Amino acid sequence: MPKVGEDLSREQRLAGQKRLTDKQQAFLDNFMHKDMTQTSAARKAGYANPGVDAVRLLRNPVVQERYQEMQEEARSKFGVTLEKSLRDLKKIRDLAIDSEKYGDAIRAEELRLKATGLLVNKAHVLHERTDSMTREEILAKLQEFQDIAKKRMKVATKTHNDPLEIEHDSVIPAK
């Protein structure tokens, strides 16, 4: 795939290939290299409706192809993969626990959870007004969040070679 600013050959144009725009490349640079969320990356790249545009961009075949190229470039340049990073963070966590450095162990586990999408940055969470909710409504909402977390955990552990079985207690008190 041609980089931004490169012209397509006649054969590429006839084959239906399209060139990445400067704005699309700016989005990918922000998303890949500046540790931004997809919405923040689209906003910084100058998109008018960043939440919607970011989703559209990541579904665009031209953008997807360039994103995969950029990921491959990063892997080959730095030797970084999600699997390797998760494995290394697990080793760090285990060594910290063995050394009784529990703060370091918690931080390593936090980074593992963020990398797999199981832990969400507080800035990305929408808050609900709990002061107007009854106790039962709050407990029901907590149970809903816990059910979502259980589903995510099942999906995430299928990709690990050594999945851990995690116990989930219900937030609804026994009667």
Results as ranks from 00 to 15, higher is better:
D7A: 11
L113K: 12
R107F: 11
L28F: 00
R43P: 00
V171D: 01
E137W: 05
V171A: 02
H124E: 13
D131I: 09
V125W: 04
I106P: 02
D104K: 13
K151M: 12
Q25H: 10
A26H: 08
I166G: 00
N30L: 07
Y102N: 10
T37W: 02
R107N: 12
L118Y: 05
D98V: 07
H124Y: 12
F145P: 00
G5R: 08
K44P: 01
H127G: 08
A115W: 07
N121I: 04
V80I: 14
E69P: 01
I166M: 05
R87T: 11
D29A: 04
R59S: 12
E100A: 13
S132T: 15
R19N: 14
E137M: 04
Y67C: 07
D94H: 07
N60D: 15
L111I: 06
V171T: 04
R43N: 07
R129Q: 13
I148N: 12
K122A: 14
K141I: 04
A74K: 14
F27S: 02
I138K: 15
R107G: 02
K141V: 05
A96F: 10
R112K: 13
F27P: 02
E110P: 03
Q143Y: 04
M153P: 00
H168L: 08
A42M: 06
R13S: 04
T81V: 04
I172V: 14
Q68W: 07
K23L: 11
A15M: 08
T116Q: 11
Y102L: 14
K90P: 03
E6W: 05
L118T: 03
A156H: 03
Y47N: 03
T21S: 15
A108V: 11
L20T: 02
K34Q: 14
Q68R: 15
Q12F: 05
A41Q: 01
K77A: 15
L142M: 07
V4P: 04
A105G: 15
S170Y: 03
E65Q: 11
K91C: 05
T39H: 09
S132N: 10
E167I: 14
L113C: 04
E6H: 08
P163L: 10
A115Q: 10
